[in-house]
């Protein structure tokens, strides 16, 4: 496969996964911002969370001056001038798909193209008129549809593998960042009063819901969520498809099945990462300090992404 083709496929799925993750992030924050706030006031702090996680708060403040609920939501969701907005991610995904429309199936192309056409209409209306939850649901649904069309129609060859690689690199990064952000907000001591604080309950369940893991958590742990159990589920267990371990397993298996020798560095990194997660316990993670550990992993995932780039996507 052409390196540029692989690169377009990889980024197409990365951007689409990112759009979905941003929508998930937005959904949690929006629903939490509607909760009665203890000493924080009007929920603006919570609405700022997605901007903090994506590192776009400064840019927002520069453009808009003050925290304003609707403007923040629009900036994050539909601003064509904010390259990190959901709108721009969908645009970038579509642009990449357009460049390789000959290599993806008609079902996939039509799907991603229709999403792009529709988000332009939504942007015209503005996010408040369309409805925040409605919009988040819509983005997720489009992503689900695309994944389904991909899964159901594309040949299981290199194209499929690079699409999967893009998805799971992006997803791994997202799970790590979301967990880190919630953890920072709640702090380590939350585990001591396990579940007794309403605030911690809503924070952790919102995170689990954002990662579609709430039901799984309830079934596996049958108890109130706290830092330890939530981290174990989202980092080390394979049952939920958005956990770090699920992502690295997939990355490892996709990379080892790619032909050729020039991918050795990426394959080795993926194998190391996979082994590390397989043989680590949550106690070891917490001993190291969750925040430190998460940031270490964010860097490793980034390194793996770079290795994929230099091994496959930029080959001379």
């Amino acid at each position: 496969m052409l390196s540029t083709t692989a690169s377009n496929l990889y980024w197409m799925s990365r951007y689409l996964e990112r759009a979905e993750n941003l929508a998930r992030m937005l959904e949690v924050s929006y629903s939490l911002s509607l909760m009665p706030q203890d000493d924080h006031g009007n929920g603006l702090d919570e609405l700022a969370m997605p901007l903090i996680i994506t590192g776009t708060l400064d840019e927002y403040l520069e453009q808009h001056g003050e925290m304003h609920a609707e403007r923040m939501l629009n900036f994050f969701g539909l601003d064509a001038n904010n390259p990190a907005s959901i709108y721009c991610c969908l645009q970038a995904a579509r642009t990449n798909a357009h460049a390789v429309r000959g290599r993806i199936t008609a079902d996939m192309w039509e799907n991603i193209n229709a999403s792009w056409l529709e988000v332009r209409d939504i942007a015209q209306q503005g996010i408040a008129r369309y409805g925040i939850s409605h919009f988040c649901e819509w983005v997720k649904e489009r992503s689900h549809l695309f994944r389904g069309a991909t899964f159901g129609t594309i040949m299981r060859g290199e194209a499929y593998r690079f699409i999967r690689l893009g998805t799971f690199i992006e997803r791994a990064d997202n799970t790590l960042r979301l967990l880190d952000a919630r953890y920072e907000l709640l702090g380590e001591d939350i585990d001591e009063i396990e579940g007794r604080s309403a605030r911690s309950y809503y924070q952790w369940t919102a995170l689990l819901r954002a990662l579609s893991s709430f039901e799984a958590f309830a079934e596996i742990y049958r108890g109130s969520p706290g830092a330890r159990k939530v981290s174990e589920l989202l980092l080390l267990r394979t049952e939920v498809p958005r956990s770090l371990r699920s992502c690295t397993e997939e990355l490892y298996s996709m990379l080892t099945s790619l032909p050729g020798d020039n991918g050795r560095p990426a394959q080795r990194l993926a194998a190391e990462l996979e082994a590390r997660l397989r043989y680590t316990t949550i106690d070891e993670v917490l001993d190291e300090g969750l925040h430190t550990w998460l940031n270490d992993l964010i860097l490793l995932i980034r390194e793996l992404g770079q290795a994929i780039h230099s091994s496959y996507l930029e080959v001379a």
């Binding site: 496969m1 052409l2 390196s3 540029t4 083709t5 692989a6 390789v100 000959g102 290599r103 290199e158 690079f162 790619l258 032909p259 050729g260 020039n262 991918g263 496959y312 996507l313 080959v315 001379a316």
Partner: peptide
């Protein structure tokens, strides 16, 4: 067949090659 742009191809020793994930 592959859809290529100019940058995907190169010429070495008067032969044309495309840049692929496997070289």
């Amino acid at each position: 067949v592959e859809l290529v742009q100019g940058a995907d191809l190169f010429v070495r020793d008067d032969k044309v090659y495309m840049r692929t994930t496997a070289g």
